[in-house]
């Protein structure tokens, strides 16, 4: 019984920590979704930061993203730092807080494309998240998710008569898909099966997004 009392205490501690990670991850997810929504609502014509009005709107999104980083630090990172073995705890609960980190990466990648029409690189993403250590898988899976947002923006913009976005989105998604497909030949060896299935599913979705954007481009060219 003494043995099981000790075991019970250890299990309970795990349960509670797990719960805290779940909550921190969920908070980050919600905030990241809101940040993406905010970007989607910006008139895409504002994208190239041409005037003061644009700069104001853009500055506002910057604040949103600062808050996101604050949430990461005050949530998942703080919880990790409270444990004696940072790295160990990181991996023990990685699956639990992954969704939040991936959604954050998705928001960052979408914002980066919004501004520069380019892929947000791994190194740059790591720097943005620092001192939180970003795992390659969270980067890739978050990046893949951004493709859906890019597609949505492209379709909406072309419906509003702004044609350039669709072509930019098409070439962006094409490049992204090629890179991700290429890398997926390597992840197959490096990742556990469930994670690989996740990536494969996202690649299929990305292919469909690309197809939709290419159809838009084709219609625009007629």
């Amino acid at each position: 019984t003494k043995l099981f009392t000790a075991l019970g205490a250890a299990l309970d501690e795990r349960l509670e920590r797990r719960e805290r990670f779940v909550r921190a991850s969920r908070d980050l997810t919600m905030a990241a979704k809101k940040a993406i929504f905010e970007l989607q609502r910006l008139k895409s014509s504002l994208r190239r930061l041409r005037d003061t009005q644009t700069q104001e709107a853009w500055a506002k999104t910057e604040q949103t993203f600062d808050r996101l980083q604050g949430l990461l630090r005050g949530g998942i990172l703080k919880e990790l730092e409270a444990t004696p073995a940072f790295s160990d705890t990181y991996w023990q609960y990685h699956q639990v807080f992954s969704p939040g980190v991936q959604e954050y990466v998705e928001a960052l990648a979408f914002r980066h494309w919004f501004k520069d029409a380019r892929i947000l690189q791994f190194q740059a993403t790591c720097e943005k998240l620092a001192p939180f250590p970003l795992e390659v898988s969270d980067y890739l899976l978050g990046l893949c998710d951004a493709s859906g947002e890019v597609m949505r923006l492209a379709v909406q913009s072309s419906a509003l008569g702004e044609q350039g976005v669709a072509f930019e989105a098409s070439s962006f998604l094409d490049t992204l898909r090629r890179e991700c497909t290429r890398i997926s030949a390597r992840t197959r060896r490096a990742w556990p099966p469930s994670m690989q299935q996740d990536l494969d599913r996202k690649l299929v979705t990305m292919g469909e997004s690309l197809q939709k954007v290419q159809d838009v481009c084709y219609r625009l060219c007629l």
Partner: peptide
């Protein structure tokens, strides 16, 4: 651009 990622993987 994905070279670093590829190496890590």
């Amino acid at each position: 651009g994905f070279a670093a990622v590829a190496t890590a993987l």
